[in-house]
Write a protein that binds this DNA or RNA. Structure first.
Lengths: 113, 113
DNA sequence: AATGGAGTTGACTAACAACTCAACATTTAT
DNA sequence: ATAAATGTTGAGTTGTTAGTCAACTCCATT
């Protein structure tokens, strides 16, 4: 159904004409690690590494994160320590919100203040 | 500033007149583990274990989760795989929402459909 | 024909998470 | 005072995460 993280990364990297070694150096990992991730031999990198990759390639961070199913630490902390936010998220999950509905909520957020 | 997970658990458990052994058996862990957690010798349990504790003691799940800074797996999956939800959360984090504002959002959610 | 750049692979590892087990100490009830 | 219940502690276990390192292979040039 959904494209793997590896394939997505490989395609994006190639589009930008960056070698595995170049990318690896920019983000501070071994290049062989990039290879394995691109071929889905290893799971997607940690959130912070994924973010570095997105920045290095100049693509929206969320797209990559969501394909890797990874949560940045700051978000995890915010949610994990906030009962009210947790309740909100539980309710949202139960409603199975669509992409557009999430967009709407993000708009509402700005109008909240 | 904020009460530790351990102290909170110890207080709640005592209020309900439950021994460490009883609680441990109900949720399926060794009782010595409960002791260590209550004395903050070990970090708060995994989210799923924390939820079992909350259920066993009859207290709201979110209160305990938020004190342990743990995120249930289903929430993590939902967020981690949804770019639109991630953007929403990022925006919310940037705004430093108060408890009441989160409550408002949860209300709005119901009115969304 | 050999050098260099790019990609792939196997084996290994350090750190952390989430506990268990056995022994001992303390508190409570009889 | 003693037995039973309850609580604490040290040491060890098992699994997962997030990678590294060295050794290849496969091409494209020179």
């Amino acid at each position: 159904m959904k494209e793997t993280f590896g394939k997505l990364l490989k395609d994006l990297r190639r589009e930008k004409n960056v070698s595995q070694r170049e990318l690896a150096e920019k983000i501070g990992v071994d290049f062989s690690y990039i290879s394995k991730v691109e071929n889905d031999r290893l799971p997607p990198p940690a959130a912070e590494t994924t973010i570095k990759i997105a920045r290095a390639l100049g693509i929206p961070v969320e797209e990559l994160l969501s394909h890797g199913n990874k949560l940045p630490l700051d978000l995890k902390d915010m949610l994990g320590s906030n009962a009210a936010a947790l309740k909100f998220m539980n309710a949202a999950r139960d409603m199975q919100l669509s992409k557009d509905e999430w967009g709407l909520l993000t708009e509402n957020l700005k109008r909240l203040r």
